[in-house]
């Protein structure tokens, strides 16, 4: 165990999970109050399908022009596919929000179901065909912290630190924009700048979290810490800090478990740890926990 814990790979894996948990937890608070929780599922599914399609296209290109396509690392395809998938998904969702009267949650759920269906069909086809592509697919289903390349880990560190710094720096204005966009507009804030800033963070963190957490569980690292933190406080700033703390702690413990127990993927272990934190908070949190509510009721 000590040997594993001191290895470079394990250290990278642990740091990745902690950094991602910290930033996704903080961002998750803003996403949940924008009522975009289900959208994260749709974006994860978009990332999943984008990655698979670019994998397939790259293998097709490899058979047509081996020289050009063999020069590019397959991880570049996966990350580019992931980002493209999310961007296309955001565009489709925005078009659907504007062009019909369905509730956004219905649209998000519908798109998630459709894309997961497409994704699973693609996975089945790739598995049946076999070959080199088959080996990397499990990573996208349930996540694997060891799947990050050095470049992706470097990107993850830059993105997560940027997300944390900018969220804290623009906290006051972001709070107004999320509380009521009309008030923000009449206060002459550049509301679109803040909305797009959060969108950029979402695109980058979802693309990274799909690899670490898997397509089905990526949403948990954004939302479980935010919901857990809400049980402890009624002030947005405290909730944001607590959510980052829960996300980082859950990510770290989950990564340690996944690193030490074989056949446990990081997405599953991190989600289980975050869920345990949530249920403990539900019992003992002083603000909205069951014990706190009961004690206040007795007074």
């Amino acid at each position: 165990m000590l040997e594993i814990s001191n290895s470079f790979l394990f250290q990278t894996m642990l740091k990745s999970a902690v950094f991602l948990g910290l930033s996704a937890g903080m961002l998750g608070v803003f996403i949940s109050y924008q009522r975009r929780s289900i959208e994260i599922n749709a974006l994860s599914a978009g990332s999943f399908v984008g990655t698979l399609l670019l994998f397939l296209l790259s293998s097709l290109g490899l058979s047509i022009s081996p020289y050009i396509f063999s020069q590019v690392d397959k991880h570049i395809y996966s990350f580019t596919g992931s980002i493209l998938g999310i961007l296309i998904m955001i565009t489709i969702l925005n078009i659907l929000y504007k062009t019909n009267r369905l509730h956004p949650h219905i649209i998000q759920s519908l798109m998630t179901a459709v894309l997961l269906g497409v994704g699973i069909t693609l996975v089945t086809s790739i598995r049946q065909a076999g070959g080199a592509l088959d080996s990397g697919i499990d990573v996208y289903l349930f996540g694997e912290t060891t799947s990050l390349t050095d470049e992706e880990f470097y990107f993850l560190r830059i993105i997560t630190v940027t997300v944390i710094v900018l969220l804290l720096l623009f906290f006051r204005r972001l709070r107004v924009v999320i509380f009521n966009v009309d008030i923000a507009k009449t206060s002459h804030f550049h509301t679109m700048f803040y909305v797009h800033l959060i969108n950029v963070f979402v695109v980058c963190l979802v693309a990274l979290s799909v690899k670490l957490m898997g397509v089905f569980l990526a949403v948990s690292i954004f939302l479980i810490p935010a919901v857990t933190a809400r049980l402890w406080s009624n002030r947005l700033f405290t909730i944001t800090l607590l959510s980052g703390f829960f996300g980082g702690l859950g990510g770290g413990i989950g990564a340690v478990i996944a690193g030490n127990i074989s056949h446990v993927s990081s997405g599953i272990s991190i989600t289980i740890v975050l869920s345990i934190m949530f249920f403990i908070s539900l019992l003992i949190a002083p603000y909205k926990g069951l014990l706190g509510v009961w004690l206040r009721g007795r007074k």
Binding site: Y33, F170, R172, F179, N234
Partner: peptide, 24 residues
């Protein structure tokens, strides 16, 4: 207005001063 938003009355009222302040 989203009344489930985690903010107290004083902080909500103080938001009125933000338009006079610089970004940070």
């Amino acid at each position: 207005v989203n009344w489930d938003f985690p903010i107290n009355v004083y902080d909500l009222v103080l938001m009125g001063s933000y338009n006079r302040l610089k970004k940070v």
